[in-house]
């Protein structure tokens, strides 16, 4: 309960800190907008079209492999705290689990999921 409370307080304080600073800034700063100033800066010249268009980001295969490995880490954290109670048997089990995972990783590499075109 206390953990939630502290975390909530940190989040609220962080939010209030940014909001209040932006409010102070709003009082202090000048405001003289004009259409040219409010144009997207990009790299100086007038931007051509929107940035929100479809293009191939190349990252989705990494995202799939990421999910697999992140779940692995989530499984292994409780194991790491408790495995001393179980002894060598638990270590052997973990090694089999990791070996299966690495086999999947090697397969993904062989299929070209980790290559950049």
């Amino acid at each position: 309960m206390n953990a939630y409370l502290t975390a909530a307080m940190f989040t609220i304080t962080g939010f209030a800190f940014i909001a209040s600073t932006l409010l102070i800034s709003r009082i202090l700063r000048p405001s003289a907008p004009n259409p040219d100033k409010l144009e997207t800066y990009e790299c100086g010249p007038l931007p051509v079209g929107d940035a929100w268009r479809q293009f191939n980001l190349h990252y989705y295969l990494f995202a799939l492999v990421f999910v697999v490995f992140d779940v692995e880490a989530a499984f292994l954290y409780p194991w790491a705290v408790a495995f001393k109670l179980e002894g060598p048997y638990a270590v052997a089990e973990m090694l089999i689990f990791v070996a299966l995972l690495l086999a999947g990783w090697a397969y993904a590499w062989k299929r070209g999921a980790l290559e950049w075109e």
Binding site: I24, L28, R29, P30, A32, L38, T40
Partner: peptide, 12 residues
Amino acid sequence: LLMKEDIIPTRA
């Protein structure tokens, strides 16, 4: 930075 004008692009 506190006294700089704040710019939010219209297209953002």
